[in-house]
Design a binder for these strands. Structure first.
Length: 1104
RNA sequence: AGUCCUAUAGCUCAGUUGGUUAGAGCACUGCUCUGAUAAGGCAGGGGUCGGCAGUUCAAGUCUGCCUGGGACUACCA
């Protein structure tokens, strides 16, 4: 009868075909949805999806990041947890806006003039989802399971409402405030820049600027009583260095380090050659003067600005200089002292002052530096802002008025203000040194022009208030790798500054704060309902005609700005025009994705905080931070318990991938060529997720060939023979482990060990470890050892108990391996699973059981390792003597030093003997006298005991004579003499091994020694012939394309030497080759001639 | 500039609390096995474990400094 094949046999199926098939299956059976619904009521495992932005194409690094996310979600699912994965889209922010500007050919200035804000935002809304289809496609192709049917979208009204709710909570906790801060600002673009923008690649550039060391003249009236300045008739100056001379007119103070040593010196100005007295840090003296010019006769000065003679008049600490007043360096109409809102032109102390650069005296222009502003505020110095928002000097700065401080307008003949100021200083005896200085300076990534620091109004979140709590909570988070949490993230938390929330853009979540014009009254809105209610009041007060908040209302600009509210005093309140930082949007996702607290309260409670999140390490200060900050402020909780931060994907040479370099990897092409599973497996197994991955196509090919190829063939082998025998796995009854062969129990033991170890690795967020363990099991243990050694067991005629055991064992291995690998290789594992079980249920709906400790036999695993080691040694001996494995040999000898070792080896000797084709194994005892022994000290034990004598002892011990060794073995200890000192060495402090058997061919490794008897008797020789003949016939069968089950007749031409062999081994040969008979004849047509160990043999085979 | 990561064979990576021949895979060379193979086995070449110092009986492993690569943060004038 023709049996229907139980197991699908495959040939030349590509990974891509498998994946298409499985993807189709998942889709039409809604497997992903089932994997969640089926586990309703089970313990939830909470995962947060960090929203990607769909306005860019997905890259290979997204595949890595999403593979990591997918792995743990799938693993937890197969462990029985319910893992919801709500997808999301990040939709606000600058990248979208810029893309739209580029698309429309406009700049920020045109928004509101050439194009209405409404139209512009509409365009953003469309553009941000530009590549959604491509993203959906890669999601499906790479096998990433995430719910994209009901994603959260940050531009959604509901999402915004939740964000508003959060902001109001923070507002009520007094975490929100408006402040005046120095911020990066691009005059060319007319906009403030976020720190994220400042850190776009290429923003910090090395530029050469004109730097100046200016002479600030001391007001002698302020030092009348000061003995430090001995000669009140002379002029004294502070030296202060700046790389931005254009800020000098805005100078209002000088800062010194309280503990820094300063010197007062007498010298000349190198430009005017006038005699001057200068104050600068002692440590920096050598920067401007050569030591040999000290005490040089002042008369010898050549008036060339070189080799300035100088003389140290006095020294003091910076503290002593504080309070001294100086004359304004560059007085103009606009910076008259009366116009300054503080007590300016004084020396103050600041802890930021160092002597690593400049003069140790820092020029302070509070409007153009964050440090400056801070220290000025602390000292009541006041500020000058002589530059406007366009980056040009305001009126009243003399000839500089109207000039741009940098070339913001691409003027063809732009003359550097820095240079002109320096020239003026030189002329006026106010410059001590002017030179070009190369440093790295931030540039506006859009205009490529240098930014300046400028005082701007902003809303801030007072994260500094919860800093300590954030640090504390961070310690409870399991970071992978740990160093990112303690180091990078921890350090960042320690040095927190308040979070600047304001963005002066158009497409983003509007700040829900309305204020009166006099800033006296304000309201923070926390919901649409509240806004409606407030609007009603406003209508009643006559500030608005009617409610505009209907169901279709868009909470974005410009509509939200049409709403005017009324204050308690009756005054109108208008919305603060800022948008909020987009990072706040993504950090709000734990709440806003559920429209909490307006809906889904219970769902939220069950899904906060997350058990697991994963993103690139570049998110440390991004999403990881905003999630943490908001959760801390809102609920005094962490937002996530475990976090994996993955490294970058580099090209195969270790370079960063970039479009300009053309070394990017197209994930679609990669997946199409090698398959998603192979790509995923390669990325995970090649290096730890947090290490950078050098992406090399060769590695993909190797993974495909080795792991997937091997597994595919192992399955196919199983299928072919199972079908031949009509074997069918019985889900209920299996042959008990105890009744299976040693090698079956071994591989099952290995399998259960693997299950435990791999699960532990997954649970520990170590996917690379898991992948490598699985790979090792499949290739080394299952394929290269178990299947190879067991092949014969599958060949017999009937389905014996032993054969059934072999089938069951192999089946169980494949089944569990499929489950273990399913998180990483979701397609192939499901394909394998379904083929094995003949089911249309998915592996991803299955339950992974723990490894059964009763099935694990470590002693068995150990002795199999020994069997492998011994086999390997014997094979290497055969190699040395050039005796083929096909040639049977009589015996191998193993020294019997360790009784346990022998007992263990004896249990696996059958495997060894058949593997190396030897008849017997003989254990030779100690007393034979032909074993030579060696003693190796146990360094760990002896090192502690002997300390400094260890080296000498080691030498001594290794040179112990055979008698000494015998003594040691017998008595359990021996005395040795080291530098006239006696030491007692115990038996357990050394290792005794045999490494030679005299008179035999010996190989030795890892403490195991084997000798091989290479004498070939006539009988062995003939058996060797028989094996050779079998080999030729098998080859011939294969070449003739016979089925493995075909019976044959063998026709052989009579041959003097081999006829005897053919007779003697007829049964053996027939058995091996499925031959019905061997027919000898004098002459055979069609025969092929074979060389059998030097004998010619004519053979012809035909199907019976 | 600061913080953190990283450096082991030509390439990709292992390497336990420090313990004595530093490993695997790929690639290369030779031989070999095959009744599942895209394979497998055996042998070979290939390493001042980035450099220098230190701690120690003992350092790839611990400490410090330096160099290369990378990330993040950053107006230090």
């Amino acid at each position: 009868m023709s049996k229907a094949k139980q197991y699908r046999e495959v040939k030349n199926l590509t990974q891509a075909q498998i994946e298409n098939e499985i993807a189709q299956f998942w889709k039409s059976n809604a497997i992903f949805e089932q994997s969640i619904h089926e586990r309703e009521g089970k313990t939830p495992y909470v995962f947060y999806e960090g929203p990607p932005s769909a306005n860019g194409m997905p890259g290979i690094h997204h595949v890595l990041a999403r593979t990591i996310k997918d792995i743990f979600c799938r693993f937890k699912t197969i462990q029985g947890y319910q893992v919801k994965r709500k997808g999301g889209w990040d939709t606000h922010g600058l990248p979208v806006e810029l893309q739209v500007e580029k698309l429309l050919g406009i700049t920020k200035k045109d928004i509101g003039t050439k194009i209405s804000v409404a139209e512009y935002n509409q365009k953003c809304r469309e553009e941000v989802m530009k590549y959604k289809d491509v993203w959906d496609d890669i999601t499906q192709k790479m096998g990433y399971w995430v719910d994209l049917e009901n994603p959260y979208i940050t531009f959604d009204n509901n999402y915004i409402e939740s964000v508003w709710w959060i902001l109001k909570e923070l507002y009520q906790k007094d975490f929100l405030y408006k402040g005046y801060k120095i911020q990066p600002y691009s005059p060319a673009a007319g906009t403030g820049l976020s720190s994220a923008e400042l850190n776009l690649p290429g923003c910090y550039k090395d530029v050469k600027d004109t730097s100046a060391v200016a002479q600030f003249k001391i007001e002698m009236a302020s030092v009348q009583e000061n003995a430090f300045f001995a000669n009140k008739d002379e002029a004294y100056y502070f030296l202060a260095w700046t790389t931005t001379p254009w800020t000098l007119p805005s100078n209002t103070a000088l800062a010194v380090g309280a503990a820094i040593d300063y010197v007062l010196i007498k010298t000349f100005n190198p430009y005017t050659h006038l005699p001057v007295n200068l104050i600068l840090a002692k440590d920096l003296l050598s920067k401007y003067f050569q030591p040999e010019n000290e005490q040089k006769d002042f008369a010898t000065y050549a008036q060339d600005g070189k080799n300035l003679p100088y003389q140290i008049i006095n020294t003091c600490k910076g503290k002593a200089l504080a309070g001294i007043r100086y004359e304004q360096l560059l007085p103009f109409e606009a910076n008259q002292k009366e116009k300054i809102n503080g007590d300016a032109f004084r020396v103050i102390t600041g802890d930021f002052v160092t002597t690593s650069d400049g003069t140790g005296i820092v020029h302070i222009a509070p409007s153009f530096g964050a440090d400056d502003m801070k220290v000025a505020a602390e000292n009541g110095i006041g500020a000058l802002t002589l530059v406007d928002l366009e980056g040009k000097f305001i009126d009243g700065v003399g000839a500089f008025s109207g000039r741009y401080v940098k070339d913001y307008k691409n003027e063809p003949n732009y003359i550097s203000v820095d240079i002109d100021i320096s020239i003026q200083l030189k002329k006026e005896n106010k410059a001590f040194k002017v030179e070009k200085y190369e440093h790295s300076y931030p540039h506006c990534w859009r205009t490529d022009k240098p930014i300046i620091y400028y005082p701007l109004d902003s809303w801030f979140i007072r994260v500094t208030a919860v800093k300590d709590r954030m640090v504390e909570l961070n310690k409870t988070i399991n970071w992978k790798p740990e160093s990112t949490g303690t180091g990078r993230f921890g350090q960042w938390l320690e040095n927190l500054i308040d979070w600047n929330l304001s963005r002066t853009r158009y497409w983003g979540t509007p700040l829900p704060i309305w204020r009166t014009e006099d800033k006296d009254e304000e309201i923070c809105i926390g919901s649409v309902e509240e806004l409606k209610a407030e609007m009603q009041k406003s209508i009643a007060a006559g500030w608005m005609d009617k409610s505009i908040l209907d169901a279709t209302f868009d909470l974005h600009k410009p509509f939200v700005d049409d709403i005017i509210l009324v204050a308690a005093s009756g005054k109108p309140m208008r919305r603060e025009s800022d948008l909020i930082d987009v990072w706040f949007d993504s950090g709000a996702m734990p709440y806003a994705q559920w429209h909490f607290p307006f809906e889904n309260k219970e769902t939220f409670q069950q899904s906060f905080p997350a058990d697991f999140i994963a993103e690139g390490v570049d998110q440390t200060r991004g999403w990881f931070y905003t999630l943490h900050a908001i959760a801390t402020m809102l609920f005094d909780s962490v937002a996530y318990k475990n976090v994996v931060s993955n490294g970058l994907v580099l090209d195969k040479n270790g370079n960063k991938m970039s479009k300009s370099k053309g070394n990017t990897v197209d994930p679609f092409k990669t997946i199409e060529k090698y398959g998603a599973d192979v790509t995923r497996w390669y990325m995970i197994s090649n290096s730890q997720p947090w290490d950078n991955l050098k992406f090399d196509e060769e590695g993909l090919a190797e993974t495909g060939r080795k792991l997937f190829g091997t597994l595919y063939n192992t399955y196919n082998f199983f299928a072919i023979y199972a079908n031949i025998d009509g074997f069918r796995i019985d889900t209920q009854e299996r042959i008990p482990l105890a009744e299976r062969a040693e090698i079956d129990r071994w591989v099952i033991s290995k399998l259960h060990s693997l299950t435990n170890e791999a699960a532990a690795a997954y649970n520990d967020y170590e996917p690379t470890k898991a992948a490598r363990l699985i790979e090792d099991f499949v290739i080394e243990h299952l394929s290269n050892w178990y299947v190879r050694l067991c092949r014969r067991r599958f060949w017999g005629n009937e389905l014996s108990q032993d054969k059934r055991a072999a089938f069951e064992t192999l089946f169980e291995c494949l089944q569990t391996v499929a489950q273990l690998m399913s998180p990483i290789a979701p397609f192939f594992s499901d394909w394998l699973w379904q083929n094995l079980l003949g089911t249309s249920s998915s592996i991803h709906l299955s339950q992974l059981e723990n490894g059964n400790d009763k099935a694990i036999d470590k002693a068995l695993e150990q002795r199999m390792e020994w069997a492998q080691e011994i086999s390997s040694l014997v094979l290497s001996l055969r190699k040395k003597t050039k005796i083929k494995v096909r040639q049977p040999l009589q015996k191998i000898l193993v020294p019997a030093i360790d009784k346990n070792f022998i007992a263990q080896v004896d249990k696996v000797k059958g495997l060894i003997l058949s593997e190396v084709n030897v008849k017997e194994i003989e254990y030779i005892s100690d007393t034979s006298g032909i074993i030579s022994k060696k003693v190796k000290p146990n360094f760990k034990l002896l090192g502690k005991k002997l300390g400094g004598k260890m080296k000498a002892a080691s030498e001594h011990i290794q040179n112990l004579s055979n008698d000494d060794i015998q003594h040691l073995e017998k008595n359990g200890h021996i005395d040795i003499l080291l530098e006239d000192e006696k030491f007692n060495i115990l038996l357990e402090e050394v290792e005794i091994i045999s490494d030679d058997i005299q008179g035999w061919l010996v190989a030795s490794n890892n403490g195991i020694t084997v000798a091989l008897d290479i004498h070939i008797s006539e009988e062995l020789k003939n058996e060797g012939f028989a094996r050779e003949i079998v080999n030729r016939i098998q080859t011939e069968r294969k070449e003739s394309d016979f089925e493995v089950t075909d019976k044959i007749f063998i026709h052989v031409q009579n041959q003097l030497v081999l006829n005897g062999v053919l007779n003697t081994y007829k049964e053996y040969i027939c058995n091996e080759t499925l031959a019905k008979d061997i027919i000898l004849a004098d002459n055979i047509s069609n025969a092929k001639v074979f060389d059998i160990n030097g004998e010619e043999l004519y053979i012809f085979i035909q199907k019976a």
